[in-house]
Design a protein around this nucleic acid. Sequence first.
DNA 1: AGAGCATTTTCACAATATGAAAAACGTAAC
DNA 2: GTTACGTTTTTCATATTGTGAAAATGCTCT
Lengths: 282, 282
Amino acid sequence: MKSQNNDDSSPRRARGRPRDWEDKTAQNTIKSLDRAMEVFEFLSEAQGKALTVISAEMGQSPATVYRVLVTLEGRGLVEFDPVEQVWHIGPQAFVIGARFLRRTSLVDCARPLLRKLMEETGETANLGIEKEGSVLFLSQVETYANIRAFFPPGTLSPMHASGIGKALLAEMDDARLTRTLQGKPFEAFTEFTITDLAALRDNLAEVRRAGFAIDGEEKNLGMRCIAAPVFDVNGEAVAGISVSGPTSRVGTNDIERLSGSVMEAAQALSLAIGGQVTRPRT
Amino acid sequence: MKSQNNDDSSPRRARGRPRDWEDKTAQNTIKSLDRAMEVFEFLSEAQGKALTVISAEMGQSPATVYRVLVTLEGRGLVEFDPVEQVWHIGPQAFVIGARFLRRTSLVDCARPLLRKLMEETGETANLGIEKEGSVLFLSQVETYANIRAFFPPGTLSPMHASGIGKALLAEMDDARLTRTLQGKPFEAFTEFTITDLAALRDNLAEVRRAGFAIDGEEKNLGMRCIAAPVFDVNGEAVAGISVSGPTSRVGTNDIERLSGSVMEAAQALSLAIGGQVTRPRT
DNA sequence: AGAGCATTTTCACAATATGAAAAACGTAAC
DNA sequence: GTTACGTTTTTCATATTGTGAAAATGCTCT
């Protein structure tokens, strides 16, 4: 999993029985809890639906879904709107979810750097990580300008059509790349989207050479984005920093200026989290 | 629950059996799911603990806690750090939690107003709502200045020592006030914290009269905060907007200037979400 | 009034969650 | 190397408790 396979200086403090599988996870899964969490996730994607609708769309018994929702409601994870008679995600889910950010100091370390980056470049600065083959946006500092690119924190975006996504993919070895992109079709969002693996590989080689990735209207027409990877102590690319803005402001001849700032910010963040600034491979 | 008890022009589209209780919630609660969510919430408060520690502190069987965690891990709601052998909140929890903000357009409507407020006043602008007797910060736009007040979104704060909290309390009728503060001791954070109900009531009367609330170093020494309530279509105070900054910049003679901007922003947000600008009572 | 509809509750049954204890396994000490 | 220890998994017998079908309850609309 880690990119280095020699010099194992990291303190493996593991005790007890190890976790070999990723296969026997299923064995210890609590079925009813898993079904309940399915309801929870389904609701988060499709809020504002009535009990009947939810249970019908999920193919489950209304009674069961009802009890799950009532239980979650008791903890504020879910809310019921008595006027519209529909269910929503509750504030407690937001509270717990926000605590994910507290876990790593990544977001805290990044904030001042994102701000500096935004002020240097004048464009919205973003921080994202990889999550199950997608880019998860964690934090951002918005530009002062009126026309803005906006990915609210918590948004998921496909990797093949994202600056941060490509910056992360470029640092993966072949096995990890394949695994990450597994089962992810290359959806075409615009005419510029990279839609096949060969073209993506070529692009990633270029990214690796340059040290930064460009998303040139590959996700949204009129929007360009420049991203660079952040490395942790093991030399693994764990996050990406980007600036994004309209093509009118982020033009072809702005790239050199902007990419410098972005790479500088990414390197500063790598340093701040105790990571390496120089790339480990090639 | 609603502040008006006459003129029920709101479309009560409720069908089926109504929810009278808040008492029979317990009847339809799934016990195992509730216990599992307890583990989930416990972990979110105390991340980075090992299985044994969690189960011991919760007084539950290690086997059960283990299965809960493995199940949640399967959905990315929880993560296991194989090196440190400890558990954390997972990225999926953040994704779901962030979708809470999508529910109301409150946050979306507020963002440009918060930004304008920040630029007018030069201080960090915050948006918060009440959640179970506490203030939940939803969104903020940070000041450019280097010294900043910082409540990350998702943070909970006691109402009696918060500008937004007091702005919301001031708009509640007596019954709701009592209910909201029930079981909430008036913890003293600084020498300026209001620590008894009588003093708070006096302060709230003043807040109501002025139209804005001041937190003068009541939570953090050296920090002052000015807040105003936001009303929804029913005339209920559903949120608060505030600016917060160090006493050096937010001094006693800055209050008049700042409070005007804050109230203006709060009224604009009330309008934007279809609410009333004028206060319903008094 | 009465039909229609969505939400709750009831009920009987078996699926399945549970905890104690044993097994598996890594770490640290000898 | 080998043993002792601590922590995590798994096993297993048990009954707790989750489950779905169907009935009941209220609401809205005609």
